[in-house]
């Protein structure tokens, strides 16, 4: 099965762990990922203040997608997912905004958006298109005994009206559960921690250290005190605050915020029998590698 895929800047560079693990499990599941050609940044939310111009970069990527003969694209990064969905929604609304988007594309000598693009999130795609049964069939190393706290962040389910995860797949916008279902299918113990959709403050990660430290600290300590061994992520921006800058969260709320953090795709990869090195588990700044090595070496506790 051929699937168009948009990795984005972050996954191409420092968050390669998310990209590589997405590709590894996609291959296991019989998907052929075709990258959107000549990608540009999605704008990362930073151009929103400039109104319609904020649609230019996502529209450029969507136009390339359509030009490749695809109308549906799978996106792992939640920020790209949100930005591309937001523009696909503007395309769907049509009218003056769409005309202006098309004329910006024309001015840049880029192809027009000739069909309605559909933007899908990898998590939702795995659960709904591939199916939990199919995923469960491939599990070689069940995650039995591993207590996983799913963390969705914001942009996977908000704003609901723009996103296919809610509109097409029927995800619950207040209490999303696809990652819960997926982790349960891998044999993991799913930890409910009530911070699943709490914002990590990622937009102001650099500019507002105090708030970012408090928000990330609260998420990590809530998950930890609920008994989690690991927080499962789906957004590289969240990874910035919860993993790479976890020291800031620990500095704000103390040791209770020290928790291994991994992408959910890495956990699927482990369950499919891949080595942690193959999935770049060591790229995580938190001690995810230590946790996974311990988990794999002690079959007794499973």
């Amino acid at each position: 099965m051929q699937t168009a895929y948009f990795p984005g800047c972050s996954l191409k560079t420092i968050d390669r762990a998310y990209d590589v693990s997405t590709r590894v499990i996609a291959q296991d599941l019989g998907m052929t990922l075709v990258d959107v050609e000549d990608y540009s940044c999605c704008g990362a939310g930073e151009l929103k203040g400039e109104g319609l111009k904020s649609h230019f970069l996502p529209a450029r990527n969507l136009a390339h997608l359509i030009n490749q003969g695809e109308t549906e694209v799978m996106v792992s990064c939640n920020v790209c997912y949100h930005e591309l969905s937001r523009t696909a929604y503007a395309v769907k609304q049509g009218g003056v905004h769409l005309d202006q988007i098309q004329s910006m594309l024309k001015a840049a000598d880029e192809p027009q958006i000739l069909e309605q693009p559909t933007v899908r999130n990898t998590l939702e795609y795995l659960v709904n298109v591939i199916g939990l049964d199919e995923i469960a069939k491939r599990v070689r190393v069940p995650l039995t005994g591993l207590r996983v706290a799913p963390y969705y962040g914001c942009l996977y389910q908000r704003p609901a009206k723009m996103l296919s995860s809610v509109q097409i797949a029927g995800e619950d916008t207040e209490h999303p559960h696809f990652m819960h279902d997926l982790m349960a299918a891998l044999g993991a113990t799913v930890v409910e921690h009530r911070a699943e959709t709490t914002c990590c403050g990622g937009k102001n990660l650099l500019s507002d250290e105090k708030i970012s430290g408090r928000l990330t600290g609260r998420i990590l300590s809530t998950a930890k005190s609920s008994g989690a061994d690991v927080l499962a992520l789906m957004c590289p921006k969240c990874a910035g605050g919860l993993d790479a800058l976890q020291f800031r969260a620990i500095g704000t709320v103390g040791e209770s915020a020290q928790l291994p953090v991994m992408y959910y795709t890495q956990l699927i990869g482990i369950a499919f029998g891949h080595r942690p090195e193959e999935l770049h588990v060591g790229d995580m700044e938190s001690d995810a590698m230590g946790l996974i090595r311990q988990f794999l070496s002690e079959p007794a506790i499973r």
Binding site: I14, S40, K53, D109
Partner: peptide
């Protein structure tokens, strides 16, 4: 990898759209 991320093709044209003011 971050150093080799490169630019999209014909980036100059897209860039001038981004730099235009007034919209």
């Amino acid at each position: 990898k971050t150093l080799l991320i490169g630019r999209p093709r014909h980036w100059n044209r897209s860039r001038s759209v981004l730099m235009e003011s007034g919209q």
